[in-house]
């Protein structure tokens, strides 16, 4: 029920904004919002898996900055694109695997990835000396700016990632085991699930997707910058939690995550179109995160208790 609440809120906001601004309900505006949302969706799919295992990854924004600096510098040095892209994806995956490894040592994911948030952005500044590096490779820029069938490439990439994410959660052993670990790690272990391996893979996949998101972002902005992706982890976490993926693990909702990202971006877009002071946008984003956590924990628990109570009453009658 809470899950569908987000879709209703998204629908209501779109309807309300359509009346508030004549520019809102246009194909161009929707494409624009979707293109901005695309890299967030890509990374949030990874975050959905991490949170479903009852973990968290705060380092994705810094990883975006670090990999964007690497990509821009390597391209400027004349490294072929066919080498740069796989190398960037490998760097992202390795950074994620390192997070995952420390998490399996029973360190809190919050602290492990907070450390990575700090050191990865540090690497980004060290590597770039603090300067944004412009990107001129046309083929690379096409990843962020090109279109296919009238829809921007980032949107296609995000759609593919979301579909694959949904497939993995609902149809594969890996997805099922990630949920089992998040729901009750001890039970998963007793049933023979290799808990450590799955956790490391989940953080590795999130690192991979952060690198992919980074490629999309730097291709759209045509530079690699150590200041890229600041506070991006908050958008990603807000969207995931808003979408109904449980902060306590065991539940993953890919569709909810996509809707959550769209909701945040449509709210920002609506406020922009109405000419609201941009500084307020940050206030609103913070409040949405608070609302998301509130729905995710308190309201969800109430609804579940209520549902369970209904069940036992019915059982008593039979």
């Amino acid at each position: 029920m809470v899950h569908y609440g987000l879709f209703m809120a998204l629908g209501l906001w779109i309807v309300a904004m359509s009346f508030a601004s004549e520019y809102f309900l246009t194909w161009l505006n929707f494409l624009n919002v979707a293109r901005q949302a695309a890299p967030i969706v890509i990374i949030a799919i990874g975050m959905t898996f991490v949170i479903a295992t009852a973990g968290i990854d705060l380092s994705v924004g810094s990883l975006v900055a670090f990999t964007s600096c690497l990509a821009a510098t390597w391209l400027a040095d004349g490294t072929p694109l066919a080498l740069v892209i796989p190398a960037i994806l490998i760097v992202g995956t390795v950074a994620g695997i390192i997070n995952g490894y420390f998490v399996t040592l029973a360190l809190p994911a919050f602290v492990v990835t907070l450390a990575a948030l700090v050191y990865l952005r540090g690497f980004a500044f060290v590597y770039s000396n603090g300067y944004a590096v412009p990107i001129t490779n046309d083929l690379f820029l096409a990843i962020g700016r090109g279109q296919f069938l009238g829809v921007h490439i980032p949107i296609w990439i995000a759609a593919v990632v979301a579909i694959v994410g949904w497939f993995v959660v609902t149809k594969t052993r890996f997805g099922l085991y990630a949920l089992a670990i998040g729901g009750r790690e001890e039970a998963a272990r007793l049933m023979g699930i290799k808990v450590e391996r799955i956790k490391i893979a989940v953080y590795g996949a999130t690192g991979f997707l952060a690198a992919l998101g980074s490629i999309v972002i730097s291709a759209r902005l045509s530079n690699g910058s150590p200041n890229s992706g600041i506070m991006l982890e908050l958008d990603v976490i807000t969207a995931t939690v808003l979408g109904g993926t449980s902060l306590f693990g065991g539940v993953a909702r890919i569709g909810g995550t996509v809707a959550g990202v769209l909701f945040i971006n449509f709210v920002r877009n609506g406020l922009n179109l109405m000419g609201v002071n941009p500084f307020w946008v940050q206030v609103v984003t913070g409040l949405i995160l608070l609302l998301a956590v509130l729905l995710n924990t308190v309201v969800n628990r109430r609804v579940e208790e209520w549902a369970r109570l209904g069940d036992t009453e019915r059982e008593g009658q039979t």
């Binding site: 099922l176 949920l179 089992a180 998040g182 729901g183 009750r184 001890e186 039970a187 998963a188 007793l190 049933m191 449980s246 693990g249 065991g250 539940v251």
Partner: peptide, 10 residues
Amino acid sequence: ALVPQLTVTQ
């Protein structure tokens, strides 16, 4: 040793 969020079948 059941996982509460998973279904009976799972």
